[in-house]
Structure formats: structure tokens, C-alpha cells
Design a protein around this nucleic acid. Structure first.
Length: 285
DNA sequence: CGAGTTTGACCAGCGC
DNA sequence: GCGCTGGTCAAACTCG
């Protein structure tokens, strides 16, 4: 099976001879992801909206590797959920966060015991999400940011629980979910939601500070992603993705300026999406 | 003592 | 309407 991965996403797989058209054929196939010789695969849950609803992110992830209902929900709310990359998500837009992390808890009103979770009638705001699978024994891969675990749930059809993390930066609303694949316990599925509005905090283990957004994924993942394979399982070129870890001041790819003809559509000017996702050393030039 | 984790409970969305 | 499930809260707990 040589399904063609997208160009410029292979790091040291010299045998790859990908073309931009490969994207079109790279449909999401969990089996492919898991059984391939690659260590890591990146999926995307696209919440970003372009000019239209053409992008139906949920399609990429119809595999049960990722919560399916989420995808549907996500697609449905993609338009409303998209935040300008330059604008950190206002806490107000996220009731749950605004109440808990701001410390402005409306001193427990007896009549509303738990409505901090979500206001009634207020739809949960979904942020753009970015998912990838990594073969790793470690559940929680470090990515340069500090995360605080705020929940864990058993998920249906999976013996492994799903963990919920939130960026410890009080101004940052980025969340991530970590779960193991039920099909392949060695595979960790990490889903980022939202965009960091700050830089990495550096690695406590001497990984180097201030590596910038590129460290977000690259540094930690390099061991795992040395042979990483990223692909967009979508026929469309990747949407304007400001990856979750991209600082807001980074220029994002102009939606209408996708470069499908470019051999590396994912690598926008100034590295763009993968520039933020993949450490430069991991990229093939 | 502050930061992070655990865990049970609650809530919303969705399908039937 | 009801039940299921995912997502989140927050108190209690652990750790450095």
C-alpha cells in the first residue's frame, strides 16, 4: 500500500516521493496510520472556517480513533468557533473557563449549583482542533507548554481513559485531549484545541528555552516524530491553520492563498502550519 | 504553600 | 422525553 503522504511531511523517509496530489488520495485511514511504518501521524480537526462551509473537517476523522460526535459537533460549529488567530479567545466566550480560571467565581449561588459549567442555551464554543497520533509509551507528550489536567473520562469503545488538559497559562484557553487508541495501545492520540496566545515555557528537562512555537511540537516530538509523517487526510489543501501552539502574532496562511500547486502546501510562508508544528530540523527542505 | 492530579458529580448535546 | 456520552467543574488530595 503506498498511499502517498503529503509532501514535505516526511522527515527522513527518503523513499518518499510525494506529490501535492497525494493529498487528495490521502484519506483518513486509521489502519494506515497505525500500521504504517511511520511513528506519528497528524490528523486535523478543522474548525477554522474559510470562506465557506466547504471544509468539513469532521470527515477526516470519522474513524473512531477520535471521538466521532465531537467531529460532528465541531463541523457544525466551525464557523462560529473560529477565532481570529490574533485574538486570544475571550474568556467570555467560554463560560466554563471564564468562570473558573479568572477567579471571578460568582460566589456560589445556591440556586445555581453548577451552571458554571455552561450557561444554558449557550453553545459550547469549539476551537480549531488539531489531532495527531503518536506511537509512544508516554501518554502525555511534552510539547513545550505546561498543561494542567482537569479531567479524565472513560471513553466508549476504548479501554483507555481520555485525559483532558488545559494550558496552565491563565490567559490561554488551549486544551488538549490525550487518549490511547483502542486498536493500538501503543498509539497515543493527542488532540489540541485552540491556539496558544503565548510562547512556550521551555523545557524543564533542559530542552532549551524559548524555542518558540516550533518547539511546541518539535522538541518533544522529535524523538517520536523523527520519522513522523504528517498528512492531511483531506482532499482539500490544508486550511488556514494556525496551529494550536502558534503564537498569535505569527502570520497565518491566507485562506484563499492556499498553494495547492506548491509541493509543500502545508508549509506556508514563514513555515506556516508545519513551521509551528514541526521543528525545523524535522522538515525536509 | 502553591501547583498539579484525582475523581465523583454535573451539564449539554445528541440519538432513539 | 429519556438515556448515553463527552466535556467540565471543583473539592480533596498529592507532591515538591
Amino acid at each position: 500500500m503506498d498511499r502517498d503522504p503529503p509532501p514535505n511531511f516526511s522527515t527522513n523517509d527518503s523513499s518518499s516521493n510525494w506529490t501535492s496530489s497525494s493529498l487528495a488520495s490521502a484519506s483518513v485511514d486509521a489502519d494506515y496510520l497505525l500500521s504504517g511504518d511511520r511513528e506519528t501521524s497528524i490528523l486535523t480537526e478543522f474548525g477554522w472556517n474559510f470562506d465557506s462551509d466547504e471544509v468539513q473537517p469532521s470527515r477526516f476523522l470519522d474513524s473512531d480513533q477520535i471521538a466521532t460526535d465531537d467531529n460532528a459537533d465541531f463541523a457544525g460549529t466551525s464557523t462560529g468557533s473560529l477565532q481570529s488567530p490574533d485574538v486570544p479567545v475571550p474568556l467570555a466566550s467560554n463560560p466554563s473557563l471564564s468562570s473558573s480560571s479568572s477567579g471571578e467565581l460568582p460566589e456560589k449561588q445556591p440556586e445555581i449549583p453548577r451552571n458554571k459549567v455552561k450557561k444554558k442555551g449557550q453553545k459550547r464554543i469549539r476551537q480549531p482542533r488539531f489531532a495527531f497520533m503518536t506511537k509512544s509509551e508516554v501518554d502525555h507528550l511534552e510539547d513545550g507548554y505546561r498543561w494542567r489536567k482537569y479531567g479524565q473520562k472513560a471513553v466508549k469503545n476504548s479501554p483507555f481513559p481520555r485525559s483532558y488538559y488545559r494550558c496552565t497559562n491563565s490567559k490561554c484557553t488551549v486544551k488538549k485531549r490525550v487518549e490511547r487508541s483502542s486498536e493500538d495501545p501503543t498509539v497515543v492520540i493527542t488532540t489540541y484545541e485552540g491556539q496558544h496566545c503565548h510562547h512556550t515555557v521551555g523545557f524543564p528537562r533542559g530542552g532549551g528555552l524559548n524555542l518558540g512555537h516550533e518547539a511546541a511540537f518539535g522538541t518533544q516530538f522529535s524523538p517520536h516524530m523523527a520519522q513522523a509523517q504528517f498528512f492531511y487526510p483531506d482532499p482539500h489543501p490544508p486550511p488556514t491553520i494556525s496551529p494550536p501552539n502558534a503564537p498569535p502574532n505569527l502570520p497565518s496562511v491566507a485562506p484563499s492563498q492556499e498553494e495547492p500547486t506548491n509541493s509543500s502546501p502545508q508549509v506556508a510562508s514563514d513555515e506556516g502550519l508545519l513551521g509551528d508544528v514541526v521543528a525545523p530540523g524535522m522538515r525536509r527542505r
